[in-house]
Amino acid sequence: MQLVFDGHNDVLLRLWSHAKNGSDPVAEFANGTTAGHIDAIRSKAGGLAGGLCAIYVPSGDLVFADPDVNGHYATPLAAPLDPLPSLAIATEMAAIALRLDRAGAWRLCRTVKDIRKAMASGVFAAVMHIEGCEAIGADLAALDVFYAAGLRSLGPVWSRHNIFGHGVPFAFPSSPDTAPGLTEAGFALVRECNRLGILIDLAHITEKGFWDVAKTSDQPLVASHSNVHALTPVARNLTDRQLDAIRERRGLVGLNYATAMLRPDGRSDADTPLSDMIRHIDYLVNRAGIDCVALGSDFDGATIPEEIGDASGNQRLIAALRQAGYGAEDLTKMASENWLRILASAWREEDA
């Protein structure tokens, strides 16, 4: 079985949401469930050995727009979030991550050596990530607290604006060049992430924000769960120019399993063939190179192809890639090693 280290999931959001209704998040993850996409049992069955687990504060006012007769849609950006409620929610999700670690349901990893050790022992290797930094104030004090708790990766924005920068909307067809980029607070956040060794994720930021990070950060450029704009022109996908920059900086793109970001028609439809995923992988490999392509499933955060279904079906994608001509070395790179190289670089580890 090809072990997978995945670049993005929203399992903490699901566990937090269910905990509000009385569910025990440790039991739900450790013992298995029929809800969502990820738990320890289904992950092990599908070779999902770990990944970046997002702390994401939901936007209650976001209503996805219905496609018109041509399949086009433009969902208005969610309103900015208040910082104090965002901090409370983010802290609750971080607490769930810590409880899972204490219970042995997963291992919260702060180094690549931690990840390798967890993967070798068959324990889910979780890395704490923040998706949209509404919980962090401009003084960045909360960043130090989350770092001490295990935070090692963040995206300055989700698909909404905040004090650090501007996010892209959910829209098809649309350019990612939809709004300004980083604010002054955003530039300061990037510099502090460089100092601490926190990976900066460009998955939801505008194209101008992408270039702002590129000129400020000393890290490889990373979009943890994004696909190819030339194949599926949603605002969230990456242009050829962005892919070229990722290649030049020896960065990474994690293939997003979200069907709306895979299909030529941009529809959110689980009846999406694995060939659409292969089409994006092939393009990414041809444009950015095999060393810059990995997986970023968006499990528990998106509609994914029904042929995969949940974490237990991950090996179906591996089998499809193998059938498409990718050999053992290439599969190992895309499944895990490219992510571990990137994390070692961002975290300044000499031996990954």
Rank of each mutant, 00 (worst) to 15 (best):
P83T: 13
M93G: 03
L98W: 02
V123P: 01
G122T: 08
R107C: 10
R107V: 05
P83K: 11
K113I: 10
A103Y: 05
K117C: 07
F124S: 02
S121A: 15
L84H: 13
A95W: 02
A118W: 08
A90R: 07
G122H: 06
K117F: 06
G104A: 09
A105C: 10
A125Y: 00
E92N: 03
M119P: 01
L84V: 15
K117Q: 12
M119N: 02
T91C: 11
V127G: 14
P85V: 12
F124G: 01
T111I: 09
C109E: 02
A88Y: 12
L98Y: 03
C109N: 05
F124N: 00
R102M: 07
V112R: 05
A105Y: 04
V127L: 15
D114A: 05
K113D: 14
A94D: 05
A88G: 13
T111H: 09
T91Y: 02
S86Q: 08
P85R: 09
F124Y: 14
I89C: 15
C109Y: 02
I89N: 11
S86Y: 03
G122N: 12
A94F: 02
I89P: 08
D101W: 04
F124P: 00
L98K: 10
W106D: 05
L100H: 01
A88W: 12
F124T: 01
S121L: 10
W106S: 06
A88I: 15
S86K: 04
V127F: 08
I96A: 02
K117R: 10
A95I: 06
S86M: 11
G122K: 07
D101A: 12
I96L: 05
A103F: 06
S121V: 03
A103D: 12
D114S: 06
M93V: 13
R110E: 14
R99T: 04
